[in-house]
Simulated assay, not measured.
Amino acid sequence: MTTTKKQLTREKILKAAWHLFRQQGYPETSTRQIAREAGVADGTVFSHFPTKLDMLKAGMLTQVELVLTKARQEKQGGSPAQKLLHHAGFLYGFYADNREFSRELFKEAIWQYDYFRPQVDDFKRLLFADRADQDENNELDAEIMMDCYFMTLLHGLNRPETNAEQMLTELGKKLARLFRTTGN
């Protein structure tokens, strides 16, 4: 598949935006700075991303997909809970290593659930992909598991002393209790 000039320009803008967001913070970064960093005209930025928030959302999708791709390259557990813990280890590591930036990301992105829903739904399907008993309980279990994942993440990011391993342990305890209670 050939990458077009337009795609290359979009990627360049997104890379510049992500770099500046991490370096100086999302609120402090202007679209003009992003254009300069990317080496494009100001208007070019807006032809690819209508708003700065659109750049943040696209950057998050890209970064999370990179982390998940890395996680998929390693052996995963068999149960849905084991799969979630496997992937959460990688994701929590990414967010904890970039704690302040991650807090900024979530402050903006938490209200953008519809935008991120396809990625979350794909992830929920991954958790239950090997289950023969495909039913509506799996959907409910997946939804509860994702709630546990996100609440553990947000709680951990708000405690500076908490690292990725501690978040993963906390998530593991929640999932163990959940599945002990439900019998799944």
Rank of each mutant, 00 (worst) to 15 (best):
13 I>D: 01
119 Q>Y: 03
122 D>T: 08
4 T>S: 13
163 N>L: 01
136 E>I: 10
146 M>Q: 09
177 R>I: 10
148 C>R: 12
150 F>M: 13
35 A>N: 02
125 R>C: 07
96 A>G: 08
66 L>G: 06
138 N>A: 13
59 G>H: 05
17 A>C: 06
108 E>D: 14
112 Q>K: 15
124 K>H: 03
3 T>I: 15
149 Y>T: 01
91 L>A: 02
104 E>F: 12
156 G>A: 08
149 Y>A: 10
181 T>V: 08
113 Y>D: 14
39 G>D: 04
20 L>P: 01
25 G>F: 06
48 H>A: 09
102 S>H: 11
28 E>L: 10
139 E>F: 06
80 P>T: 00
128 F>Y: 11
59 G>E: 02
70 K>W: 00
9 T>F: 10
121 D>K: 11
119 Q>G: 08
144 I>G: 02
146 M>P: 07
173 K>F: 10
125 R>G: 04
118 P>Y: 05
43 G>N: 11
43 G>H: 07
160 P>N: 14
41 A>M: 09
6 K>T: 12
29 T>E: 08
121 D>I: 11
3 T>A: 15
145 M>L: 03
164 A>P: 00
49 F>Q: 04
36 R>N: 09
104 E>L: 11
71 A>G: 03
151 M>P: 06
6 K>W: 13
67 V>A: 03
6 K>R: 15
155 H>E: 06
178 L>T: 00
136 E>C: 10
162 T>E: 11
11 E>A: 15
53 L>Y: 02
103 R>T: 04
20 L>D: 02
54 D>M: 07
181 T>D: 06
102 S>C: 13
130 D>P: 04
166 Q>C: 05
172 G>Q: 02
1 M>T: 05
126 L>V: 07
85 L>D: 02
25 G>N: 09
45 V>E: 01
112 Q>P: 11
29 T>W: 07
166 Q>Y: 04
175 L>H: 08
100 E>V: 06
79 S>L: 07
100 E>C: 10
2 T>A: 14
88 A>S: 09
174 K>Q: 13
34 I>E: 00
93 G>L: 12
2 T>D: 09
1 M>G: 11
71 A>H: 01
69 T>V: 10
153 L>V: 00
139 E>L: 11
